[in-house]
Design a protein around this nucleic acid. Structure first.
Lengths: 209, 209
DNA sequence: ATTTTTCTGTTGCAAAAGCAACAAGGAAAT
DNA sequence: ATTTCCTTGTTGCTTTTGCAACAGAAAAAT
């Protein structure tokens, strides 16, 4: 149930709306970094990408993971501390770049894409809030085990199934949950040993309840 | 720089807008709990309140802290897991209750309050996103020490000063940073011993940089 | 097809965080 | 004014997490 299926509007915007830019990115390219582009809004049309932060220790954090139709951009961030923050393509990506202030105004060319975005803007941002709140719930869990279980049940709910694929490598999952990889592996093993989950390749199955 | 100063609209809404309710709460009362009021939006007109979650272990987390003109409500949450989640008044509070779907429609009575809210809705929610993103940045820090320093620099920036009051008791601060209180106290002491901060009562002063 | 890189799984050891408990100070309630 | 409750500060001990390192498997690049 996508609030906004961007691809549906592609033709319209490409023909009419001058304020909208589309770019293609290859795997591992940097889509944008968050430095003083206060107004930038991006929409991922296709592909997968991560918002990544490195701290002064070299610890990597996957702040968010984006897939088709997700929105991101520096407009969602405060004047940040001093950590580098950037979005990297995990696969080939198509991205639309918009300017937030333009979005709120009516479109010069009266294009449908622009209008639809404008109408759905608060809904889109609201959806983002709910996603961030879930993420906060996950991050406030006290142990690595609880984080894993919490994350797995989100995936399970999203998939309407006890079984689901991990959208991350285990290395990335650790960076997403903000824990040490080896400690996470240990916990994963113990979840398996205790009969809470089954893991075959990158498919997890919940065995509890 | 408040995007929306609710008190400025109070008269208007009280006279005209039937869809808006205001209630007073006394210290320690529960303002709302997050169970199947999918559409609820609340605005804190005065006072202070916390969004609190208890997990199955009895661990308390202060998910968010609200003060004047902050918005909250279940509309910002997904169909949650099974943790109880509620907002508790830390002092006497006045709260406005709204219904999100009504907000998006024009007001029957054409009241200014309603219209202003409607116009600023996406801006308000966007502001919420930036707050949540800062919170995520804080929670993804790997150590208690980094969380403390991160939180302190947010407060310092917000106050335009190296010195600031903690809006929390230390007990609550631990619940906000999602760490053990005694471990946090230990870290606080070590930050003091290492000359990073000064602490007198609930006033912190940053001594670095 | 072969080399190079990344990912998984694991371990011993060190460091950090959590738990339980208690005493003293302060705030709030009666 | 006195009692009760909450907060602060602290500590010994346990558990969890992080770090460093390595080998084998898998994936990607050439």
């Amino acid at each position: 149930m996508d609030l906004l299926d961007v691809s549906a509007f592609m033709k319209d915007y490409e023909q009419h709306c001058s304020k909208v830019q589309r770019k293609h990115f290859r795997k591992n390219e940097t889509i944008t970094n968050y430095i003083a582009k206060r107004n930038q809004v991006c929409i991922l049309v296709s592909g997968e990408a991560d918002l990544i932060r490195y701290d002064y220790n070299g610890n990597k954090t996957i702040v968010e993971h984006f897939s088709k139709n997700d929105i991101f951009g520096e407009v969602f961030y405060m004047i940040t501390t001093n950590n580098e923050l950037f979005v990297r393509a995990k696969q080939d990506c198509d991205v639309i770049f918009l300017v937030y202030d333009n979005l709120k105004k009516p479109c010069d060319a009266n294009c449908k894409f622009h209008e639809t975005l404008k109408e759905n803007l608060s809904e889109l941002i609201l959806q983002k809030v709910t996603i961030l709140n879930s993420r906060i719930e996950l991050l406030t869990k006290r142990s690595t085990r609880d984080k894993l279980i919490g994350y797995f049940s989100i995936l399970s709910t999203r998939n309407f199934s006890k079984s689901f694929q991990l959208p991350f490598s285990l290395t990335d999952l650790a960076d997403y949950l903000s824990v040490d990889r080896s400690a996470m592996m240990r916990e994963l093993k113990s979840l398996r040993d205790d009969g809470f989950i089954d893991k075959t390749g990158n498919v997890i199955t919940l065995l509890y309840k």
